[in-house]
Amino acid sequence: MSQDDDALHERLKAYEGKSAGEGGRGPDPVNDPMIRHWCEALGHPAPPDGSAPATMLQVWTMAGYNGPTGRSENYLEMFRLLDEAGCTSIVATDCEQEYLRPLRPGDELVYDSVIETVSPRKTTKLGSGHFITTRMELRVGDETVGTHRFRVFKYAPAKARKSSEEAATKAKRPRPVVNRDNAGFWEGVADRKLLFQRCDGCRTARFPWLPGCNSCGSQEWTAEEASGDGTVYSYVVMHHPPFPAFDPPYAVGLIELAEGVRMICNVVGVPYDKVRIGMPVRLEFAEVEDDLVLPVFRAEEAV
């Protein structure tokens, strides 16, 4: 999270606990025609007692065609702040309602609402922005008839953001971590060879690279080139969090080589959701970035 994000969140947090609208009035009393239209459009059975369906609650508070009215200055101000920060889109994410008694034609609703919480900046598939939770209490006269907690995500759309990010330098993959103990492996990769170690003492094949053998403790070993045949021993499909250098969802495999050792690698030539345990794969080398060659494994079956 950047400092700017923090500063914006601080300003947004100041609205927590403030009114989002007091003494709002439903534009129409609860009425048969609106109930009928709603039931018709949604295919909802009409309640036999002539009351309004409970899940229609919020409808009675909606401002309708001419846009929001009855919103407090606080609420509008907070939305202006978000708009200015590029969070111009909005989507509802959660709704919790309690219905204390059925609403009947003739009931005239009044409502108060309060801004409960504003989240720190969050990034979702839609984009990056803030979750805003408001809670509304609905009354008929002095009687509370329902409560309504509503969460929306007010965000800057991902597509608009991406283009600005792409203009900047493309993020790079994490580099291999190389030291004296495993440099031989990466030298092999540079020559398009996949090298594992074999213990000179007990002949055990070894990967990852280490200076000595876990089976017998011998410090003598020889590098051997893998045949390149392997199978998927296990795999993960990465969805979250997003890393700029990768494009989720993507699959990461644990490949068992024909020689019996395993290594983490990407599986290519097959969609991320078609990778399976036991799938035969074949070694290739890919220049994934200008200065980064990695071994990858291509799925052998046509899927």
């Binding site: 994490p174 580099r175 291999p176 971590v177 030291n179 990465m238 990407n266 980064l292």
Partner: peptide
Amino acid sequence: AEGVALGWALPYGLL
């Protein structure tokens, strides 16, 4: 040694 052990997974996005 500790960094290298985890490092085998990083370039492939297992992070």
